[in-house]
Amino acid sequence: MKTRARGHHTARTLDQLAAGERAVIASVDCPPAIARRLMELGLLPGTEVQVIRRAPLGDPLEIALRGVHLSLRTSEARHIDVTPA
């Protein structure tokens, strides 16, 4: 179970960002093996991430971080908490 509110900000998840919006990753709340792989791909807490666009059918998302562009499904992005950049 994940805590919704962290600190002073209302915590949002990556899938809730609008196209073009930037944020900083706060935590990755997935099963351990998935969390590890996402982190190895650079989605570490503290990393700045930008949502570039949504796919034409609304899913997945294109995100950019550390100079890399990734396609991430909404169902995966939902587990990544972000705070404003």
Partner: peptide, 10 residues
């Protein structure tokens, strides 16, 4: 399997 569909857009 790992239900992970993250993919790089090169």
């Amino acid at each position: 399997g790992l239900p992970l569909y993250v993919m790089e857009l090169p």
